[in-house]
Structure formats: C-alpha cells, structure tokens
Design a binder for these strands. Sequence first.
DNA 1: GCCCAGGGGGCTC
DNA 2: GAGCCCCATGGG
Length: 222
Amino acid sequence: MYNIGVKNALNNIYQLLFKEFGNRHWWPADTRDEIIIGAILTQNVSWRNVKIAIDNLKSENLLNLKSIHQADISSIAPLIKPTRFYNVKARRLKNFTDYMFGKYSGNLDDTFNQSYVALREELLGVKGLGAETVDSILLYAGGKLTFVVDAYTMRILPRLGIGNDKWKYTDYQKVFMENIKPDLELYKDFHAQIVHLGNLICKGKNPICEDCPLKTTCKFRK
DNA sequence: GCCCAGGGGGCTC
DNA sequence: GAGCCCCATGGG
C-alpha cells in the first residue's frame, strides 16, 4: 500500500500536528525500565493514572525491572491500583521480567541486541503483551524502528481518508512504515502527536472537531 | 448512579 | 478468526 497520495497525506498530517503542538518529547521516562513498566501499565487507561502508579512504584524503589523481578505480585499490585486491572497488570510485569531475566539474565542491552523481527515475535509471546505494548517497548525503549498504532490512530486515520473499519492493527502499521521516512524520532513523535490529538478532541463521539488542527484535511469536514 | 477509558486473554461458535 | 465477556479504578 504505497502511493504518493498517502505519502503526501501522512507527511501533511504530521506537519500540521507538529506545527500545532511542537515536539511531544514522548516517552516521558528517565530509564528504559520505566518505559517498559509504563507501557504495560498504560494498557486501557489514561496516562494520568499511570503517572500515579509510576510514582507509587518509585517511592517503594520498585520502578526498575530487577526489583519487580524480585518482588511478589502482592506487593506490586496495591501500588498500581490506579491503572485498573492491577492484579492482571502486576502479573504481566512479572511475565516480562521472568522472560527477560530467564533468557537474557536481566540485561536489556542483550535483549534489544536481537533483530527487530525476532525480538518482536519473542515479546508477542510473553503473556499480556500485545502488538501495541510490544511496539511501544521496541520503539521507545529499544530504539527499534516500528510504528505504534493505538485506538486513536485507528479512529482518526479513516477520517483523513486512510483506512476503514475493516483495517486491522497491522494494516495501519504498514501504511505508516511504507510511507513515512524511516526515522526513529519521527516514529516516536508521530505516534505521540496522534495520541495527544486523540486525548484533546477525537473521543469518537462528536465527528465535528472545531479545534482540530487537521480539520482542513478531515473527510468529516467536507 | 452511570458511563467509559491509549489493552489483552480466553472462550465460543 | 470474529465476536463477546472478563479484568475492576477513577473522573466526568
């Protein structure tokens, strides 16, 4: 799915968003461990709540993978309550550390030293990590060139004439990866821009978004 | 009180 | 392989 129309549209969309919002500096974290933990905690919950959980973990010195690996689920779960599904998510955090300490002795450099394709498959095999979580980890913590697709992406792109309700995660991911410049910083910021826009105005209820910087592009406005 | 949110697993057919 | 329920907090 490569054509000059899509390529121009995506570039145009990014330029409009960047002009409106500036560089989003995403992912907000001090360490790779924190990015990975945040990627799991943010599943189906707003970043506001994740932030609270992150701070809770930090205050108990649990905001790193080694400590998570050594801790019991029962001591992690209460700290991440604000992110909903806290028991499930505590298990998922430990699923990741079990995998990483089991296979790579807890060494993140070794983990991310694997090829993109092999590592992505491997991570998808960890219970509790789906495509969006895995791609977030690979892109923001691992520096791998993979585009992160989320619910906002799939809601907004069709309005701009790209995709439809039949498209799946992979279809959206491909359209980005085949049509935008293969640049790590662009991948990071483009996804961040879409999320920011989605948080502001595209909740999916009202199709007419008066404040949307993309309104000249949006099919709902024509 | 009610609705829904930046996801993923598991079951059913 | 799509469709549905489960998980179970917090803000509007």
